[in-house]
Design a binder for these strands. Sequence first.
DNA 1: CACAACTTAGTTGTGCGCAATCAAGTTGTG
DNA 2: CACAACTTGATTGCGCACAACTAAGTTGTG
Lengths: 149, 149
Amino acid sequence: MDKTPRLREQACFALYTASRAVIGLYRPMLDKLGLTYPQFLVLMALWETDGLTVTALGDTLQLDSGTVSPLLKRLEAAGFVERRRGDGSGDERRVTVHLTEAGAALESRGCEVTQVVGGASGMSYEDLVALRDKLTEFTESIRTRETND
Amino acid sequence: MDKTPRLREQACFALYTASRAVIGLYRPMLDKLGLTYPQFLVLMALWETDGLTVTALGDTLQLDSGTVSPLLKRLEAAGFVERRRGDGSGDERRVTVHLTEAGAALESRGCEVTQVVGGASGMSYEDLVALRDKLTEFTESIRTRETND
DNA sequence: CACAACTTAGTTGTGCGCAATCAAGTTGTG
DNA sequence: CACAACTTGATTGCGCACAACTAAGTTGTG
């Protein structure tokens, strides 16, 4: 029984490293669009459903307001999105996030990026799908156990 | 052909989310040891091989000096590690990192944490090993393609 | 020896990520 | 209506990550 866990044997470390590696793979391509990876995720969410509230965006990306608010501030400053308070709902607390023309225009180039990254991953489509499903299962499983101490 | 990639379908997003979720699972336990996850990784590397240089630590954790240097500064301030310049090698550029007594003493409690997290992941040992290997393969594959533009 | 090229750590600046806190707005209950 | 509980988004503070740069030390070449 080797009680000392080796770094290389830890699935969590592999996860941590892999995550940073993919983002690093995206980086040079996203740089050309003037985006960071989290900013790109926001746009992907909006390309799918424009006009999400800040909370809905946070739920989608699994990020809290302390991350999303400044993220949107930068995206707004860059001219990719626009925030509107009390948009139609009559609830003045709600802020909806909308793509600008520039933000919407990035969609096709953005999709290209995901294609290229998928190809550069060195894995087949089937493998990627299997990995994604395994990871999603993993995350769900963790979230349900989050109350642990 | 749906050209617009959905966030939920992206393996990269699943990776990004899963990574943060595991670290979140570690957080409350590591808080009790006074450590963050990256700091815990440094200690794991040192429990395995004490006296690594800053560069060797960076290679092990796949982090550059801009991340490792301040990380070690905080770990040193917390009394878990100690840095020594030109340690024996006669090369005054090299800084080796050594566990203090307090740092070494955390090992058994640290190992416990990895056990608990492994259990709380909701996956079998075999599944975790398979996932880890898939992720390692993924990362390696990406690193070899990093010269892409 | 001279000196350019390189290696090693560290610093600076920007952008996440998250806990904690806050202010403004809304809702439920009496 | 009054007012406590809640929701929504923003702010603050700290610790990563990483690019770009710097300073100090080492090595290879003539």
